[in-house]
Design a protein around this nucleic acid. Structure first.
Length: 488
RNA sequence: GGGUCGUUAGCUCAGCCGGCAGAGCAGCGGGCUUUUAACCCGAAGGUCGUGGGUUCGAUCCCCACACGACCCA
């Protein structure tokens, strides 16, 4: 028998030993007086003398994370993930029979005790167990107690082990929950209504990305997992929900990297009677509030450096950003031929096929994106890569759009929404010619019924959580990131 | 897409110039009634990611593949 199997066999033998003694290793219930951390908090201030006189009884259960045997006595640590409480097991208190249950205890099991609280000579709050009960036997061996799991892959594949043994991982996912909660609080305080819109869509619109395809059998209909909720949320604005948001998953059938997971969580919100400038102000306010509440600071550690959210955030045209972060000159960004030459210099693929706006955007990504550490609103996006954004009145080749960059990554994308149905149809048609999509007539029809002037924004929640927790990979902030299946 | 690095016991990690595979934790046996990374004694535990190649001999060198981490575009 190999080592791993032997460890399992040992545990299974203990399980059988319990059953032979008439002990159910998976009892249906064990009523507790509270979670371990609640009990620890409740008696935090109680000193040894008051516990001595009070005879305070508690019933508590938890995962056994350490056992320290002393012959006719032992200490076991019970953990609830947030905290631990030790129990003192004494043979003379429990009796020979109950005390011998310890022989069948393994790290990772859930056990419960019932007893009286006291403080040891090192003043640690401890339960003197008068009952000892197995609550759930663990049959698989647990990782080592000092380091937990370190291998990134295994941490993601067996997230439960990561969460249970690495406090930092637990902090990341609790911070994630807190961030989402803060965003909801912030938006609801401003009258935004949370909705859910289709994840399966007959036309995958609202962004440019390859979609996942699925099929509805009864309707015999191909459907796409949404790449963005945008076009449905704007239909709701047409319907009179003038402040609306959704926090949920979108799906893009593209590469996986430290900044990309095929399914990811996005906040999208739409705000009638606002424009993209209002969105910049709101975004500053929202993200600063979330950072203060969740991370406790607006200066966030980011690798060797920091991302400083101090307001006001920089606002920079896309063109200006390229000029600022490369040796390119204004004339290199002018005529088509010059632009193509510049793009080739930076190793951009398929140069002749790309529109001039796309070339500029590619140059931006190649030169400036990774260097934008502190928050920067990049504005003045070309109209030909912004088919859903309103044109700038003073320059119809540009749009009222920005993307927010920080920590060298894109965090948000926002614009004054295009609400002219005729212009929208033309832009869809241009896009269809260029990239082979279809015109979403149903959406244009909605616009034909009239959408008020509206601003809308999408914020990548996973990347926001990366920033708030100092995580350099999106896989560290997604509980179960997509991984290649392992065949073993 | 290109490059660099990693994969050794259940877990965390060593392993020098190619010559019998090492430790801590966990597990197993024994001891110990206030310990807390408990401690003390003892005996175990390995397809060195997978497949090829070079060599008298490969965890180690070469090639390919798988999975992962990081960097670049």
């Amino acid at each position: 028998m190999e080592a791993g199997e032997l460890l399992r066999a040992n545990r299974r033998a203990k399980l059988e030993a319990l059953r032979e003694r008439g002990v159910d290793p998976y009892p249906a219930r064990f009523v507790v007086d509270g979670r371990v951390s609640e009990i620890v908090a409740r008696f935090e201030g109680a000193d040894a003398a008051s516990l001595e006189s009070g005879a305070q009884r508690v019933r508590v259960g938890g995962r056994v994370t350490a056992v320290r045997g002393h012959g006719k006595a032992a200490f076991i640590d019970l953990s609830d993930g947030d905290g631990r409480l030790q129990a003192h097991l004494r043979r003379d208190v429990l009796g020979e029979e109950t005390f011998s249950l310890l022989d069948n205890l393994d790290l990772g099991d859930f056990w419960g005790v019932d007893g009286v609280l006291f403080r040891t000579r090192t003043h640690e709050l401890t339960v003197k167990a008068e009952r000892l009960v197995v609550l759930a036997k663990a049959l698989a061996p647990w990782p080592e107690k000092w380091h937990g799991l370190t291998d990134h892959e295994q941490r993601a594949r067996q997230r439960y082990l990561d969460l249970a043994t690495n406090p930092q991982s637990r902090r990341v996912f609790l911070a994630r929950a807190a961030a989402v909660r803060e965003i909801r609080t912030f938006l609801e305080a401003r009258g935004f209504v949370e909705v859910e819109t289709p994840m399966m869509q007959p036309i995958a619109g609202g962004a440019t990305a390859r979609p996942f395809v699925t099929h509805h059998n009864t309707l015999d209909l191909d459907l796409y997992l949404r790449i963005a909720p945008e076009l449905y949320l704007k239909r709701l604005v047409v319907g009179g929900i003038e402040r609306v948001f959704e926090i949920n998953r979108s799906f893009r059938n593209e590469g996986i990297s430290t900044h990309h997971n095929p399914e990811f969580t996005m906040l999208e919100f739409y705000w009638a009677y606002a424009d993209y400038r209002n969105l910049m102000d709101l975004t500053e306010e929202m993200l600063c509030q979330v950072a203060s509440k969740v991370a406790g600071t607006e200066v966030l550690p980011w690798g060797e450096e920091h991302v400083n959210l101090a307001r006001p955030w920089r606002r920079l045209g896309m063109r200006e950003a390229v000029l600022a972060y490369s040796d390119l000159q204004p004339e290199n960004l002018g005529e088509r031929a010059a632009l193509e030459a510049a793009a080739r210099r930076f190793g951009i693929a398929d140069v002749p096929r790309l529109s001039s706006g796309k070339l500029l955007a590619e140059l931006f990504e190649a030169t400036a994106e990774s260097r934008l550490l502190d928050p920067t609103f990049v504005t003045d996006f070309p109209a030909d890569i912004s088919p859903l954004a309103k044109r700038k009145p003073e320059d119809p080749e540009l749009t009222e759009r920005f993307e927010l960059y920080l920590g060298g990554m894109e965090l948000a994308n926002a614009f004054s929404e295009l609400n002219d149905p005729d212009d929208q149809r033309r832009r869809f048609e241009e896009q269809a010619r260029a990239t082979g999509g279809v015109v979403d007539e149903d959406y244009v029809l909605a616009l034909e019924h009239g959408m008020p002037p509206t601003a809308g924004e999408g914020i990548g929640i996973d990347r926001l959580v990366m920033l708030l927790t100092g995580s350099r990979s999106i896989r560290d902030v997604i509980l179960f990131p997509l991984l290649r299946p392992r065949d073993d």
